[in-house]
């Protein structure tokens, strides 16, 4: 499979996970069979991880509280940061964990039902981990853009309905 075709398929699916495969085939001027095969391969290789939905929880009737936590840790001999990162990312309320350069080590994104739940997570689960040296919690006040999608008021189509 060409890298260009792979990229085209991935960007279409990233834009809309519910797009029909024969629509992808038409849009990229390829046989449907080839597209099926490509998607299959990408799923098996773990390039396509899952088909999700981007939700703006700020507008949903159940609200969620998001927090970003800067975590300083002591790396472990033989495991570096991986083992400690795993101890953190296995908690289901953790949305993402990144190893960072700079003044702290792990950036942990949390999404839970309430502010209390954030506090509980930090004090009862995160801080007591042996290698964790310090934590700094930032609450998210408003999400403007997520995964490349603007959640704020989108820019309107101001065009006239018919133009030459």
């Amino acid at each position: 499979m060409s890298a260009k075709l792979e990229h085209a398929v991935l960007s279409l699916l990233e834009e809309n996970a519910r797009i029909e495969l024969d629509q992808i085939a038409t849009m990229l001027d390829e046989d449907k069979e080839i597209i099926i095969q490509i998607v299959d391969e990408l799923e098996k290789k773990g390039v396509i991880v899952k088909y999700g939905t981007l939700i703006n929880w700020q507008k949903a009737s159940t609200k969620k509280v998001a927090a970003l936590i800067d975590v300083k840790v002591t790396p472990q001999r033989g495991h570096g940061f991986d083992a400690i990162a795993k101890r953190i990312y296995l908690f289901p309320e953790v949305r993402s964990v990144y190893l960072m350069s700079g003044s702290y080590d792990l950036s942990v994104a949390l999404e839970v039902d309430s502010m209390e739940a954030v506090g509980k997570f930090v004090t009862e689960k995160l801080a007591p981990i042996d290698s964790v040296v310090s934590t700094m919690t930032h609450f998210v006040m408003k999400k403007y853009k997520e995964d490349g999608v603007i959640l704020d008021e989108p820019e309107k189509d101001e065009r006239l309905v018919i133009t030459p």
Binding site: R159, L160, V161, I162, T163
Partner: peptide, 17 residues
Amino acid sequence: FDLVNSKPDAISLGVGE
């Protein structure tokens, strides 16, 4: 154009931009 404007819910494939 005036006719289309009377149908505010229309999807327009008439735009040249």
